[in-house]
């Protein structure tokens, strides 16, 4: 074989190995941080709360809904992460677990004990929780959800919107659903075809 051909072959092989290694490194991290699942759970739970809040407005329907739905969402997400064959590094896992528990306890306390005192508090807990998730998982789509929640809280508070709950729920639900779709497509580009 011509030595020049040999060198070119080595360089091509080296390029391929580097490309494969970088893609696999990214893949490993992505497998360990399947953010699409909590995003879907959030989108479904938040959007499903809209008819509940509309139909049971007089009886604090949203309050009761979230008292049941928050633990269900937390358990579903916990089960999903525990059942997978890939785990985030210990430090990241601890941050995510502690944040999830804090969000669960904080939301339940606010919904049951401080109901009506400041309606934005559960949304702030959700937004801050997603901000921590975004940093821990290095997830842009999760950061977008956090910004959407916190931005919507600020906008609703400043404008003193009449149907603040519905506005927040629709904004957060749609953004979380869109983020989940983006994550799913990125996790496996074949799904987009």
């Amino acid at each position: 074989m011509n030595p020049a051909t040999n060198v070119n072959g080595d360089v091509e092989a080296a390029r391929r190995l580097i490309g494969d290694a970088e893609a696999l490194g990214e893949r490993g991290w992505r497998l360990a941080s399947p953010v699409w699942f909590p995003q879907i759970v959030t989108a479904l739970a938040v959007l499903a709360s809209v008819p509940v809040a509309l139909l049971l407005d007089q009886d604090n329907g949203a309050g009761w809904y979230w008292t049941v739905m928050t633990p269900v969402a937390a358990v579903a997400s916990g089960w999903f992460f525990a059942s997978r064959g890939v785990r985030a590094p210990d430090r990241v896992g601890l941050v995510v677990l502690a944040t999830g528990v804090a969000m669960l306890i904080g939301s339940l306390l606010v919904v049951r004990l401080a109901a009506g005192s400041w309606d934005m508090a559960p949304w702030l807990i959700l937004g801050m929780g997603f901000a921590v998730f975004a940093a821990a998982w290095r997830s842009v789509s999760t950061a977008v959800i956090a910004l959407a929640v916190l931005g919507a809280v600020v906008a609703v508070t400043l404008t003193d919107a009449a149907d603040s709950y519905l506005v927040l729920a629709l904004v957060v639900g749609v953004v979380a659903g869109g983020a989940a779709v983006v994550e799913l497509v990125r996790a496996d580009p074949a799904r987009a075809r």
Binding site: D20, A32, P89
Partner: peptide, 17 residues
């Protein structure tokens, strides 16, 4: 090299995965 690259970010991965 693929195994090490997959584990590069410090994640734990099960054998089957």
């Amino acid at each position: 090299l693929g195994i090490l690259a997959l584990l590069r970010s410090g994640v734990g991965i099960e054998f089957a995965s």
